[in-house]
Simulated scan of single mutants.
Amino acid sequence: MSPTEETPAPPNHALKEALAWISKFAHAWKAIEPSPKSLSIDGFIIWGPVLYEKHKGEDPVQLARQLFGRSGEYFKYLYPERGRSSNDPRS
Rank of each mutant, 00 (worst) to 15 (best):
Y79S: 10
A26E: 08
P60A: 09
A14P: 10
A31Q: 04
K56V: 14
P11R: 10
R70S: 11
A31W: 06
L63H: 00
L63E: 00
I41T: 05
H27P: 00
K16A: 15
T4P: 02
A20Y: 05
G83K: 15
G69F: 15
F44A: 13
T4M: 06
K30H: 11
P80M: 14
N87Q: 09
N87T: 11
I45D: 11
F68V: 03
L15I: 04
S23F: 06
P60E: 15
F68A: 01
E6G: 15
Y77A: 11
K56E: 08
Y77K: 02
T4N: 05
P89A: 02
R82L: 14
D42Q: 12
W21P: 02
V50T: 01
H13A: 09
P11N: 05
P8F: 06
S91T: 08
A9S: 06
N87A: 03
E58T: 05
L78R: 03
P34K: 11
W21L: 08
A20E: 13
Y74I: 13
Y52D: 15
L67W: 08
A20H: 04
A9M: 06
L15E: 08
D42Y: 01
P36F: 02
S35A: 07
Y74D: 12
D88S: 11
L39I: 08
K54V: 14
L19M: 15
I22L: 03
I41P: 00
S23T: 14
H13K: 13
P49N: 01
G69A: 10
K76E: 04
K30V: 10
A64N: 06
E17H: 05
G69E: 15
E58M: 03
I32D: 09
S35N: 12
L63M: 06
E5T: 08
A20D: 07
D88G: 08
H27F: 03
L15W: 01
L39W: 13
S71W: 07
Y52N: 12
A20C: 03
Y74W: 12
K76G: 00
I22K: 02
W29V: 01
A26D: 08
R90D: 04
G69R: 10
M1F: 12
W47D: 01
G69L: 11
P89Q: 05
Q62A: 02
H13M: 13
E53H: 13
G83C: 11
Y52K: 10
R70P: 00
P36S: 09
H27R: 04
F68G: 01
A26M: 02
D88Q: 10
T7M: 04
L19P: 00
V61I: 09
A31P: 06
I22H: 00
E5K: 12
P34R: 07
Y79N: 12
A31E: 09
L51K: 06
Q62Y: 00
D88P: 09
I45C: 09
L15K: 03
P34E: 15
A9N: 02
E33D: 08
A20K: 02
K56W: 13
I41S: 11
L51V: 14
D42W: 01
I46G: 04
D42C: 03
